[in-house]
């Protein structure tokens, strides 16, 4: 079965010019993400995960190579609202309630009022924040704010979801729960998901494909096709197959970390 390509990066490079000289955030990165893939990006801090995601989102302009999203340029994809983006920090607007924050993309994209209300209700339930729509961001814990920002990215119909460490600030239990929810959502909606994480178990549990990155210059050091079945109960994490994949990821990370 051949599937359509959702995101395609070819020899993608991005060099930031800083006062301390050039920083090679990405160098010759090539990667294919198919429609319906769940791809995790893992790697040490500063290896260019966020930068890569921002290139896909047309928030950063590559200095070399090319990137296409849904077969068109990243810019055209952004203009056609092809993706939802969850930032590393929740980034809710402090003057809007949780409900109004989720309404923001719907207002901008011109969804009808009744549809907006229904969608807000649905995504709030999905991230288990029902009843919090009238609260302001500062009245919520950091983890709840992060969930609200996920709900905001899920509220509108985009078939790609770009998530930058969305669960980094959450405790283990909530994280497990949201991982499960995210898998269900992914199975149900057939979205293509690019997901940045620092957690090996999280990457192995969620993804169909794990991209291991290494820093200075930021590049891909390993791409691991996850052999685990699509149907994954939480306790799959205790099986030998799971531990084998996790081991490979750890090896990849270690190789990238070598200080030569």
């Amino acid at each position: 079965m051949t599937r359509e390509t959702a995101i395609k990066a070819e020899n993608l490079s991005l060099t930031f010019q800083t006062n301390d000289g050039p920083v090679h955030a990405l160098k010759d990165v090539s990667l294919d993400i198919n429609k319906g893939d769940f791809v995790s990006f893992i790697g040490p801090s500063g290896c260019g995960k966020t930068t890569f995601l921002r290139c896909m989102a047309d928030l950063e302009q590559p200095t070399g190579g090319s990137i296409t999203v849904n077969g068109v340029s990243a810019r055209e994809a952004r203009k056609s609202r092809a993706y939802g983006y969850v930032f590393q920090h929740a980034g809710l607007y402090p003057w809007r309630t949780i409900g109004k924050n989720i309404r923001l993309p719907l207002e901008i994209m011109g969804y009808p009022k009744a549809d907006q209300d229904a969608r807000i209700k649905r995504v709030l339930e999905l991230v288990e924040l029902d009843g919090f729509d009238k609260k302001f961001p500062w009245q919520l814990s950091g983890g709840m704010q992060q969930r609200a920002s996920i709900a905001r990215a899920l509220a509108f119909d985009a078939d790609i979801l770009l998530m930058d460490e969305p669960f980094g600030a959450l405790d283990e239990i909530v994280r497990d729960h949201l991982n499960e929810q995210l898998l269900k959502l992914w199975a149900k909606t057939q979205k293509t998901i690019a997901f940045v994480t620092h957690s090996i178990p999280e990457a192995v549990y969620l993804s169909t494909k794990i991209v291991v990155m290494s820093p200075r210059p930021g590049r891909i050091s390993d791409v691991i096709e996850n052999p685990l079945p699509v149907d994954r109960p939480l306790d799959i994490r205790d099986t030998q197959a799971f531990l084998d994949v996790a081991h490979r990821v750890r090896e990849g990370l270690r190789a990238g970390h070598s200080y030569d």
């Binding site: 047309d58 952004r78 203009k79 930032f87 980034g91 003057w95 923001l104 993309p105 207002e107």
Partner: peptide
């Protein structure tokens, strides 16, 4: 408005008027 707040609207492909009314004005109050 922070660059992150501006980036968010960019991902929605918001117009200049929308950016002004929904972000700059409330942030300036």
């Amino acid at each position: 408005p922070t660059s992150e707040q501006l980036d968010l609207l960019k991902t929605y492909s918001a117009s200049g008027v929308q950016r002004f009314l929904k972000l700059r004005v409330p942030a300036s109050l």
